[in-house]
């Protein structure tokens, strides 16, 4: 399972599905012929119709597609929020396709950080409280300090006591990122992270995602904006529940992105 080696480097994995490469970077995500079928009464709706994909550790991938293309469903499956109807999903060497609810929760807690389009912060908690929340359900040693560190890392060291309503959209999204990264996850899943933001805040959010990527975190961004997708070094395009395009490209440097 872990044997497949990915094409090396953060910059340019091979076009298409990365095969074994020289540098020995492990695959973070391997999905094999994954389907997701929703039953609505008598009719069955295939949101994913057999997706096969490999994402190496440390990649920065954009998943593009129109609404209804299945990119959100893919995101949910990748994030262990949902289980595939069929097919295999190996995350960080572990087959997670058939795991019980509790184990999935554990994986979400330790390996995956979510960044949502609508931030999804708890309105009555402070920024610090929201970040600490992520540590509440797992290893909670040094919780306060780690949460403060995470907030400082996204540039909100002076906003820890603010509630979401007292923060701008960009700041709220940065709290969301801090909440995702405070657990030191291997993967950051961002679902339209800049969808609700003005371009300046959006650039700031993208800059932080780039930094995290540079630190070795696998970043997966779901978006329908091409200029956001250009930040990634690989773009996976989806349509009707299938992967229709998978291309790698050179990444503009972080400074260019701003």
């Amino acid at each position: 399972m872990v044997a497949t080696l990915a094409a090396a480097g953060e910059e340019t994995p091979g076009v298409g599905r990365p095969e074994s490469g020289p540098c020995g970077v492990l695959n973070m995500i391997e999905i094999d012929n994954v389907t997701k079928v929703y039953k609505m009464g008598d009719t069955e709706l295939a949101a994913l119709g057999g997706v096969t994909l490999t994402i190496a550790d440390g990649e920065m991938v954009a998943v593009m597609g129109a609404s209804g293309s299945g990119k959100s469903t893919l995101m949910n499956v990748l994030g262990c929020l949902d289980v595939p109807t069929s097919g295999r999903y190996i995350l960080d060497g572990e087959d997670v396709g058939k795991l019980p609810d509790n184990r999935l929760a554990n994986i979400r807690n330790t390996k995956i950080g979510f960044v949502f389009q609508t931030y999804n912060l708890l309105p009555r908690l402070t920024a610090l409280g929201n970040v600490e929340l992520a540590l509440m359900y797992g290893d909670s040693r040094n919780r306060r300090q780690r949460a403060v560190d995470a907030l400082e890392r996204v540039g909100l060291g002076d906003r820890v006591k603010h509630r979401p309503t007292e923060l701008s959209g960009g700041q709220q999204q940065r709290v969301g990122i801090a909440r995702a990264l405070v657990k030191n996850p291997g993967i950051l899943l961002a679902d339209e992270p800049t969808g609700n933001l003005d371009s300046r805040s959006g650039d700031e959010v993208m800059r932080i995602l780039h930094e995290l990527h540079a630190e070795g975190i696998t970043v997966i961004i779901v978006t329908h904006e091409t200029d956001i997708a250009e930040h990634a070094n690989r773009t996976i395009t989806m349509r009707d529940g299938l992967v229709v395009g998978d291309e790698s490209h050179a990444v503009p440097s972080t400074s260019n992105g701003l």
């Binding site: 994030g79 929020l81 609810d101 509790n102 929760a105 554990n106 979400r108 807690n109 330790t110 979510f114 999804n120 912060l121 708890l122 929340l133 992520a134 509440m136 359900y137 797992g138 909440r179 657990k183």
Partner: peptide, 16 residues
């Protein structure tokens, strides 16, 4: 409901 969803997404188990 939304709060429950957020908590679950960041790793809360059913038991929690």
């Amino acid at each position: 409901t939304r709060e429950i969803g957020i908590r679950k997404a960041i790793g809360a188990k059913r038991r929690d």
